[in-house]
């Protein structure tokens, strides 16, 4: 603005352009504020309040919700004792989500590679098949999975039909069922970013790898995987984070016996009527995810610097 060489008319037109830009951005900013930042702020606020007897909150500030996460107050003398039951749920959830991420990667990578190596005009068809499940509601798909996994379901009937097993395997309402359900639900989120990075892969590099005495496995490990790394990481993030907070899958396939974080939080807002603790649990989950992403981002930028 200190540029004196600009005429007044020019300055005026610049100012107007800036105003237009702000006006055009406003709807997006308002939406972000309303649906993203405000609920987060409310959750953060609630997590420091006192639970009401019939749900809701009482406006008395207390850090009790966070204390409750790790400690249990003795009903007789009021002393705090370490309680790992919530921590256990978190660890179980992280373990299941991690396992599902690895599983989705192992299934999704060959799938994405398969599509990326198809002739260009056929790829859209295969991508369409990958996105097809999104046309049906997740709840319905999970019920379908329940029918497949149950004792008289498709898997057990066919295994017994060919005589591999005599009695049905009890898969449903176990961690295995939740694990299978998570992989099934989030597999497309793994395949799509993997495909995006593999599609750009120059297959002459693969040939160069073979030419330089690398066998298939080593070409995969030393050439394809490092080049597809952004896609692998994006896919893992897209499976791990929603997997960690999954609600429907563990509720239906885990039978509600084996809780994951999502179910635990839902219970706090429902039957437990402890909104502050539910809010605190949600924020702790978010904090864990953010910390994990920050560590990752730092290691990536370090790696990039080391290369530069």
């Amino acid at each position: 603005m200190t540029d004196t060489s600009l005429t007044l008319a020019e300055q005026e037109s610049r100012r107007r352009r800036r105003q237009t830009r702000r006006a055009l951005l406003a709807p997006a900013l308002i939406i972000i504020l309303a649906i993203s930042i405000m609920p987060l702020g409310i959750t953060a606020l609630y997590s420091f309040l006192t639970p009401g007897t019939y749900g809701g909150v009482i406006w008395e500030f207390t850090p009790d919700a966070y204390v409750q996460f790790l400690f249990e107050r003795d009903i007789f003398d009021g002393t705090l004792q370490f309680n790992d039951s919530y921590l256990t749920i978190y660890m179980r959830s992280i373990g299941l989500a991690f396992g599902a991420t690895i599983g989705a990667l192992l299934i999704g990578f060959p799938t994405a590679y398969f599509i990326a190596t198809k002739p260009r005009e056929q790829r859209n068809f295969w991508l369409f098949l990958i996105t097809l499940p999104f046309w049906t509601n997740l709840l319905i798909r999970t019920y379908a999975m329940l029918l497949i996994l149950r004792d008289e379901g498709l898997i057990n009937l066919s295994l017994m039909g060919v005589g591999v097993i005599e009695r049905p395997l009890s898969i449903l309402y176990t961690d295995t069922a939740v694990f299978i359900g998570l992989i099934y639900t989030y597999l497309p989120f793994m395949v799509l970013p993997l495909y995006a990075s593999l599609e750009k892969l120059d297959f002459r590099l693969v040939e160069a790898g073979y030419d330089l005495y690398a066998n298939r496995f080593r070409v995969l490990r030393h050439i394809i995987a490092p080049i597809a790394k952004p896609g692998i990481i994006a896919g893992c993030i897209l499976v791990f984070i929603p997997g960690l907070g999954a609600y429907i899958t563990p509720a239906l396939l885990g039978g509600g016996k084996k809780l994951m974080i999502g179910n635990m939080i839902a219970i706090q807002f429902g039957s437990s009527r402890n909104w502050p603790f539910g809010s605190a649990a949600a924020l702790i989950l978010m904090a864990l995810v953010v910390i994990a992403l920050l560590i990752y981002a730092r290691s990536v930028s370090k790696g990039a610097r080391a290369h530069g």
Partner: peptide, 14 residues
Amino acid sequence: PVNTVFQNYALFPH
């Protein structure tokens, strides 16, 4: 025991 120099070099970018 044969190596190739490719037309577009095909150097490993990573």
